[in-house]
C-alpha cells in the first residue's frame, strides 16, 4: 500500500472509508425501514399541500405510496446532503490538507511530478468514494429485502451511479479549487455555498420560473431529472455531469502544475 501516492492515500483513509461505508449501509437500511409508517402520513400531507410547495416533497403525493418513490425521494434526495459532505471531506483531506500541513513539500522533494501526484490523489478520492457508495448501494438493497419489497440490485444500479456521479462532481470541484488555490478554506466555503444554494434552488425549481433557470447551473438539476429510478439514466445528463468533473479537474491540474506551493 505504501508504494505509491495512490496506495498511501487509501491506506491513510482506510478507517474513514470503512466508517463511511458501514455508516451509510446502516443509515440507508434504517431509512428504508421508515417507509411503512411514513407512507400514509406523507401521502396525506402532500395531498393537502399547495401546488407551489409540492415540489419540495417530490412534486406528486403519489410518489410516497411506493417503495421506489420513497427511494427516489429519500435516498436519492435527502441523502445527497450526506454524500456531498462526504465528498468535500474526502477531497479536502487528500491534497489540500497535505499542503496546509507541509507534507506536500516533503513529497515534492522526491522525484515525483506534480501531474502524477495530482492524478494519483484524485484517483484515490474516486476509489474511496466508490467503496463508500457500495455500502450505500447495499444498505438500500438490504432495506428493500427486509421490507419484503425487493428492488433488484440491477434496478438500483442506475440511481446509485447517478448519486455517485453527483458525489464525484462536488468532490472534484472541491479538490480542483483547493489544488488550484492552495486554500482548503476557500474551496470548502465556495463549494459548500454552491452546494447549499444549488440544493435549495433545484428543490424549489417548480415554484418559480427564475428558479428553474438558475437550477440548470447546478449539478442537482442533472443528476435525478427525470427520476432515475423510474426512467433510468439520461445520456445527456451523464455527459454534463462527467464534463463537470473533467473540465475543472484538467483546468486545476494546469494551475497546480505551475503555481507556487505553500511554504512555511
Amino acid at each position: 500500500m505504501l508504494r505509491s501516492v495512490f496506495g498511501k492515500t487509501l491506506f491513510e483513509k482506510r478507517f474513514a472509508i470503512l466508517f463511511w461505508a458501514l455508516g451509510l449501509l446502516l443509515a440507508n437500511l434504517a431509512i428504508m425501514q421508515l417507509f411503512p409508517p411514513l407512507k400514509e402520513a406523507f401521502a396525506q400531507m402532500t395531498q393537502d399541500l399547495p401546488a407551489s410547495l409540492e415540489v419540495w416533497f417530490g412534486g406528486d403525493g403519489q410518489i410516497w405510496t411506493t417503495l421506489r418513490g420513497y427511494v427516489g425521494m429519500e435516498i436519492m434526495g435527502q441523502m445527497t446532503t450526506a454524500m456531498i459532505v462526504l465528498a468535500m471531506v474526502f477531497s479536502l483531506s487528500t491534497l489540500a490538507s497535505e499542503e496546509s500541513s507541509g507534507v506536500l513539500l516533503t513529497q515534492f522533494s522526491k522525484p515525483i511530478s506534480r501531474t502524477s501526484f495530482y492524478l494519483q490523489k484524485f484517483l484515490a478520492f474516486v476509489v474511496a468514494t466508490v467503496i463508500v457508495m457500495i455500502g450505500f448501494y447495499l444498505g438500500t438493497w438490504f432495506g428493500s429485502v427486509v421490507l419484503n419489497d425487493i428492488i433488484p440490485l440491477g434496478e438500483l444500479f442506475q440511481p446509485i451511479v447517478a448519486i455517485t456521479l453527483l458525489t464525484l462532481v462536488f468532490g472534484t470541484l472541491t479538490f480542483a479549487l483547493s489544488a488550484a488555490s492552495g486554500s482548503k478554506v476557500l474551496a470548502g466555503a465556495v463549494i459548500g455555498c454552491y452546494a447549499i444554494f444549488g440544493y435549495f434552488i433545484t428543490s424549489l425549481r417548480g415554484a418559480a420560473e427564475i428558479l428553474t433557470t438558475l437550477s440548470k447551473a447546478t449539478p442537482f438539476y442533472y443528476y435525478n431529472n427525470p427520476s432515475v429510478i423510474d426512467n433510468g439514466l439520461e445520456l445527456k445528463n451523464v455527459l454534463i455531469l462527467a464534463a463537470t468533473i473533467i473540465i475543472p479537474l484538467v483546468v486545476a491540474l494546469l494551475i497546480f502544475a505551475r503555481r507556487d506551493l505553500k511554504t512555511r
Binding site: G102, T106, F108, K110, P111
Partner: peptide, 16 residues
C-alpha cells in the same frame, strides 16, 4: 522533478 532523485532535503520544520 527528475533532478530530485539526486537531492536530499531536510528542514527544521519538515512535515511528516
Amino acid at each position: 522533478h527528475k533532478i530530485h532523485k539526486d537531492i536530499g532535503f531536510l528542514s527544521s520544520n519538515m512535515a511528516l
